[in-house]
Simulated scan of single mutants.
Amino acid sequence: MIRHLVLFKLNEGVERDDPRVVEGVEAFRALEGKIPEIRFWELGWNLSDRPIAYDFAINSGFEDVTALRTYVEHPEHQAGVALWKEFATWVIADYAY
């Protein structure tokens, strides 16, 4: 199995209730069930107030690297990425478990 972690940092001045952010969260929330390669899917807002903390996270699982690649290239995923590019930056980590 492959774990795919994504940590998002909202751009300076962007708040969680910004309509673009709300739309972006909903776009990613809706991916579960739309992309068959997803084996495990959870996401949510960070609760930590530490200055190094990111704002939002996605924790997901895939059968193998091919399934992960299919997900990354899927049009629904790419549409969500396009939304988030407008108001956030992010880092990822993919690892076998």
Score class of each variant (00 low, 15 high):
Ser48Cys: 01
Leu47Gly: 10
Ala30Ile: 06
Val81Tyr: 10
Tyr54Trp: 13
Leu7Gln: 10
Val81Asn: 07
Arg39Ile: 03
Pro19Glu: 09
Trp90Leu: 07
Leu43Lys: 01
Arg20Phe: 03
Asp49Ile: 12
Glu63Phe: 05
Leu83His: 05
Val14Phe: 04
Asn59Phe: 09
Ala88Phe: 07
Arg3His: 12
Ala30Lys: 11
Gly44Ile: 06
Val72Ile: 14
Glu63Ser: 13
Ala82Gln: 10
Leu43Met: 15
Gly33Glu: 03
Thr89Ser: 15
Trp84Glu: 01
Trp41Asn: 02
Ile38Arg: 02
Phe40Lys: 12
Glu12Leu: 09
Leu5Thr: 08
Leu68Arg: 11
Glu76Val: 07
Phe56Asp: 00
Trp84Pro: 01
Glu23Ile: 02
Tyr97Arg: 07
Ala88Met: 05
Ala96Asn: 13
Asp18Ser: 10
Glu15Tyr: 02
Pro51Trp: 09
Leu5Gly: 08
Ala67Arg: 04
Lys9Leu: 07
Glu63Asp: 14
Asp49Tyr: 12
Asn11Gly: 14
Ile58Phe: 09
Glu63Gln: 12
Asp55Gly: 04
Pro51Thr: 09
Val25Thr: 04
Trp45Cys: 03
Glu26Gln: 15
Thr70Asp: 01
Leu10Ser: 09
Lys9Gly: 10
Phe87Asp: 04
Lys34Cys: 02
Asp18His: 08
Leu5Ala: 08
Arg39Phe: 01
Asp55Cys: 05
Glu26Lys: 15
Arg16Gly: 13
Val81His: 12
Gly33Gln: 02
Ala93Ile: 14
Lys85Leu: 13
Phe62Thr: 08
Ala27Ile: 05
Leu7Trp: 13
Phe28Leu: 12
Ala96Cys: 10
Ile2Asp: 02
Ala79Met: 02
Trp90Phe: 15
Ser60Thr: 13
Lys34Phe: 05
Asp55Arg: 06
Leu31Cys: 04
Tyr54Met: 11
Leu83Met: 12
Asn11Phe: 11
Tyr71Cys: 04
Phe40His: 14
Thr66Ile: 10
Leu31Phe: 08
Tyr54Leu: 10
Asp64His: 11
Tyr71Ile: 07
Leu47Asp: 02
His74Thr: 05
His77Leu: 05
Ala79Leu: 02
Gln78Pro: 00
Trp41Ala: 05
Ser60Ala: 15
Asp94Val: 08
Glu32Leu: 11
Gln78Glu: 10
Tyr71Asp: 01
Phe8His: 01
Asn59Gln: 12
Pro36Gly: 14
Arg29Ala: 14
